[in-house]
Amino acid sequence: MAETTIETFRCMMCGHEYQEPVVKCEDKERSCPKCRSNSIRHLKKRVTKED
């Protein structure tokens, strides 16, 4: 089973911040759920217990 963690993303266009489950090693194109921009910054994990 691939490891899944909840990660935080920030849209660099509209500023919207959101969380999403991420499967380890997944290859996924990201877009802002609010403004559809692809400038999605994967923020450093706040909770580090999965590491």
Partner: peptide, 9 residues
Amino acid sequence: RPERLQLEW
């Protein structure tokens, strides 16, 4: 300001 760099597909 990092927002000054944008990425789009």
